Simulated assay, not measured.
Amino acid sequence: MTSSPSAGDHLPVYDGLVRERGDIVAEAREVAEHAQHQARQALAGHSGVRREPPARPRTH
């Protein structure tokens, strides 16, 4: 695991990429946090989406 740079560190290559492509690291962190939140809710039995009960097979 690498340590994150302190506020005083200057990373010109990273800064240039962020300007060109957006802050992918920050976006990935947000997506991961959202996924963790959804997983915690699902494991606790709270679903944000209502599911229809499974369809029953039709008998002929």
Rank of each mutant, 00 (worst) to 15 (best):
H46R: 14
V18R: 00
P12E: 01
H60G: 14
A42R: 07
T59F: 12
Q36A: 14
H60M: 15
S3L: 11
I24D: 12
E30C: 10
H46I: 09
D9G: 02
D9I: 01
P57S: 04
H10R: 15
G22Q: 03
H46K: 09
G8D: 13
T2A: 11
R19Q: 09
H10I: 14
H34P: 02
R40L: 04
V25T: 14
R19M: 01
A7N: 13
D9W: 08
A55V: 05
I24Q: 11
S3R: 12
P57H: 01
G8C: 14
R51W: 05
A32F: 04
D9V: 06
D23T: 03
Q36G: 09
S47Q: 10
G48P: 02
H37E: 13
T2K: 13
S6T: 08
S6K: 06
D9E: 06
V25H: 03
A7W: 04
Q41C: 05
P12H: 00
H37R: 11
G16H: 03
L43S: 06
L17S: 05
S47N: 05
S3C: 10
R40K: 09
S4P: 12
T59L: 11
S3D: 12
G48Y: 01
H37W: 14
E27N: 07
L43F: 08
V31Q: 13
V49F: 04
R50M: 06
G48N: 07
S6G: 11
G48E: 08
A28F: 15
R58G: 09
E30R: 11
P53F: 06
A42Q: 07
T2E: 15
E52Q: 05
V18T: 02
H46G: 10
R58P: 10
V31D: 10
V25G: 08
H37T: 15
P57I: 04
S3I: 05
D15F: 00
H60F: 14
G45K: 02
E52R: 02
Q36I: 13
A35C: 06
R56Y: 04
G45H: 03
R19S: 08
A28R: 15
S3T: 13
L43Y: 02
A35D: 11
P54D: 04
E30G: 01
Q36D: 15
G45Y: 03
V13E: 09
V25P: 03
L43T: 07
V31H: 08
E33K: 09
R21P: 00
M1E: 05
G16M: 05
Y14R: 00
G8L: 15
P12D: 00
V25S: 07
R58V: 08
A35L: 12
T2C: 12
G16R: 10
S3W: 13
H46Y: 06
G45I: 04
H10E: 12
E27F: 13
A42H: 06
A7C: 06
A44R: 11
L11H: 11
E52A: 13
S47G: 04
E33D: 08
T2I: 08
D23N: 07
A26L: 04
H10K: 15
L43P: 10
